[in-house]
């Protein structure tokens, strides 16, 4: 033990420190630059005017026209149906896609897995509203377009989270089931499904919760539900009706969030 021990210790090497410092500096510079571009195109007169405008619209919203509420029940029911049926449809398609996309369950990594990943990315990269816009053009306005839009957007979300859950399963449990002489379908139902079931329910309910929000605005492009009424009320500047719709959406979302929290609590 005659060797001399180092006296100093630093968390990062000097070069690392310099890079880190430069990185932060670049980030701040970028922020300043973006701020300048943003302010260039802003018409400041409108911004200074904003509090007055907000107060004005707020004033027109008061008092809310509660008598409008009964007329909203049918569109609300439509919205719930769009969200629920869309979620169910999306989940049903997402399950096989997830198994094809997961590295440990896909039958072919070179062919089927890229296809499954492509389906997931496509579905995820297009917003429900855009899906609805396309579908309204293709199959005409109405509930069906909304349901399909929600389903198409859900495939990617559920598929991605589910395939990650499949890849995170404990390989030893699967190995043990394989070692009993079980067939591939049995390995799936005994080794993998019990492991991903909690994730599956929690992902599905979470997506349903998101879909309720999204389906409330799909009507803006003609896909049925509350959005349709919103569009109509906005068009005639009936702010006292708009506020009733907004409050109804808020109440529905709070309720769906409560339901999804209960479901998740029950399965974990």
């Amino acid at each position: 033990m005659t060797q001399t021990l180092p006296r100093e210790w630093a968390h990062r090497a000097p070069a690392q420190r310099a890079i880190l410092w430069l990185g932060w500096f670049a980030l701040v510079a970028l922020f300043v630059w973006c701020w300048q571009i943003m302010s260039q195109d802003t018409i400041w007169a409108f911004v200074w005017d904003a509090p007055d405008q907000a107060l004005d619209i707020g004033g027109r919203m008061m008092p809310p026209k509660w008598g409008y509420l009964p007329q909203l029940m049918k569109p609300l029911w439509d919205t719930l149906n769009i969200a629920t049926l869309g979620t169910i449809g999306g989940v049903i398609i997402a399950i096989p896609v997830a198994f094809l996309a997961a590295r440990n369950t896909t039958p072919s990594t070179t062919f089927l897995r890229p296809i499954a990943l492509f389906i997931i990315v496509t579905s995820r990269s297009i917003n429900s509203l855009i899906w609805a816009l396309l579908l309204v053009a293709i199959i005409g306005p109405g509930l069906l377009a909304g349901i399909l839009a929600i389903a198409l957007r859900s495939i990617g979300f559920v598929g991605k989270l589910l395939y990650e859950a499949i890849e995170e399963t404990d390989a030893r449990q699967i190995e043990a089931i394989t070692a009993t002489g079980a067939g591939p379908a049995q390995v799936l139902t005994y080794g993998i499904v019990p492991q991903i079931l909690p994730a599956f329910w929690s992902i599905s309910v979470f997506r349903w919760d998101i879909n309720i929000r999204e389906s409330a605005i799909l009507g803006l492009v003609g896909a049925g539900g509350l959005g349709l009424k919103m569009n109509a009320s906005l068009a005639i500047l009936a702010w006292d009706q708009v506020v009733v719709i907004l409050l109804l959406i808020l109440a529905t979302v709070v309720l769906s969030e409560w339901v999804s929290a209960q479901v998740r609590k029950a399965i974990i």
Partner: peptide, 30 residues
């Protein structure tokens, strides 16, 4: 196995019965 490798979320009975998977058809096990 070393760390038991039981299917953690299944019951004890289901784990024991999984030893029969090679003998029973899929629909029965399912």
């Amino acid at each position: 196995f070393q760390e038991y490798a039981l299917v953690e979320r299944l019951t004890v009975m289901e784990n024991v019965l999984s030893g029969r998977l090679g003998y029973v058809p899929f629909w029965r096990s399912w």
